[in-house]
Write a protein that binds this DNA or RNA. Sequence first.
DNA 1: CTGTTAGCGCGTTCAG
DNA 2: CTGAACGCGCTAACAG
Lengths: 343, 343
Amino acid sequence: MKSVQIETGHVSIYDIASVAGVNPSTVSRALNNRDRIGTETKERILKIARELGYQPSAVARSLVTSRTLTIGVVAPFLGEMFIGRVIDGIESTAEKHGYQVMFSTSRHDPDRELKIATSFQRARVDAVIIVTTHLRSTHEIFARTLGVPVVVIGQQDRDSEIPVVAMDDALAIRQAVEHLLSLGHRSFGYVGVSDRLSSNSCRANAYLDTVRQNLPDSTVHVTTPCNKNDLSRGEAALPELLKRGITAVQCYNDLVAMGLLSAALRMGLDIPGDFSVIGFDDLEISAALPVPLTTIHQPRLRLGRHAVEMVLELLNGAPVSQRMLSGDLVIRQSTGKPGNRGK
Amino acid sequence: MKSVQIETGHVSIYDIASVAGVNPSTVSRALNNRDRIGTETKERILKIARELGYQPSAVARSLVTSRTLTIGVVAPFLGEMFIGRVIDGIESTAEKHGYQVMFSTSRHDPDRELKIATSFQRARVDAVIIVTTHLRSTHEIFARTLGVPVVVIGQQDRDSEIPVVAMDDALAIRQAVEHLLSLGHRSFGYVGVSDRLSSNSCRANAYLDTVRQNLPDSTVHVTTPCNKNDLSRGEAALPELLKRGITAVQCYNDLVAMGLLSAALRMGLDIPGDFSVIGFDDLEISAALPVPLTTIHQPRLRLGRHAVEMVLELLNGAPVSQRMLSGDLVIRQSTGKPGNRGK
DNA sequence: CTGTTAGCGCGTTCAG
DNA sequence: CTGAACGCGCTAACAG
């Protein structure tokens, strides 16, 4: 049993056809498990293919079938904590349906997004998934010029022509506010971010509205520091929050909350004694902070899964509408009753 | 100026050839900016191509050139904090040289790795980059059966046939130990991980050796909790560390250090008063912890960059040898003089 | 300078 | 049940 490894170039169905003494098309039928072929010759061909280490060329196949079985995915960054499980969801679902995934990072740069769009176009991807918190008009153009199904993950504010799967931020924020109200809080703060405005204002507005609905006379202070990253934004927000005597603060996401929490602990403050903090996302590390963070869980894996399913339906010509997933408040130790200072 | 958008299928060089009244090969020459073509006809063809919204088919081109200009990248996970900047380095460098990148996650699963290998093979990627802390024998097979250049990022313990770019862990650990020694520490601890054994033992051994070389009579305690993630491993190590009166601890990475730090703070301990902590990686969040973490910085962007450069050299037939990058100790607030309890 | 021809590796008609 | 021929979109040899 010697394995013959062809070093130069790849083995094609021609090679295996000549070894088997049959026509290439017969090999093709055997490999693709088609009807009109004898069981014995099929077995023989498959055996030879295995011995020769044959691997079908996806590019040749794509050229003739005019499908690449590939989904392009654009995200602002890979390697951010939020995106990890979303990617898992996308990759595993796509794989289950025989699709490959091609990732690219946009870095929030519209120029890069355009380059990626043309890159995907040249690669002839069958569909595209965009992960973004901010659906710009460029994305609509992106989708239209692409000429293939496009699905967006993560934006739920504006309604667009592009099918979207997202979490219902407002609904989740409402849960958070109710939690804070039930604890007895009366003066509220919100720490936002300056670089994801549409997503940020969606959360901020939900927060403001819910507080005001329940407690018309309460104080709500919104601050959006413009530091270079989320952690330092949270940190920067602390002095103002303290000055205003705020007892409960919702942050745009867990990283902001983490920055705020760290800064507070460094000052010797007690959380939630001095004030309560709620995050957004439920990152893996959030449960392991010095004060485990109360936060809103995003079903990130499911976001990825749904996006792929929507893409596949679109590919099948089925009509697809927006999907709204609900997130849940995860109560840990960063929230408590107000006014416990020095407890 | 009307833009004609072909909805069904893509425009090919045949389409633009028939519009321009020339032969498809002429179009090809014009598009690829070849020599033997008239300036005027070239301009005319390019104009028509633009108007038709032509995008060359990468799959057709790949079929004939037998190069896909694509580099396959396998990492245990995307969306981990460590991998982010590595990917940035890979993507930007590849892009600069006209290459695309195709990511896949192995999840530390050898079966998945094999599937990815064949997937890359079918996609006819020109080269592969493997990100791993543990180079198993399967990777060697992977590389050999692939038939294209393979480069590994992240493993520096064993020497392999595959070209590797990595950080010199031992050298960096030595810096860390010297820092601890100069602060006056005498009883040392190391918190490791149980699921990346080769990488872990490399760091642990460097730690042990350096301590013993400098201080033969000192105490060194190594513990490797086998909890499910790095954060809880750090947390789990705390009681034992305290019981043994250890004053200085090196952790396998920043996540372990973070878990340890959080647990210590939750217990009301003072860091570095009660004991000093050093991490490994220098993640973005490590500087923003309640006690900013002293840690070893990994040049992650450069790891990615070098890997691509090595791959390109290999593609050019140039011989490539291992590359060792050096990391630097970043001293923050989690390390200090020993015996300051209650300071 | 441009047109003609061939072929990359494969799927898919058609005949046989 | 199998072989022959064609075409996917493009590049690269040749001719002209």
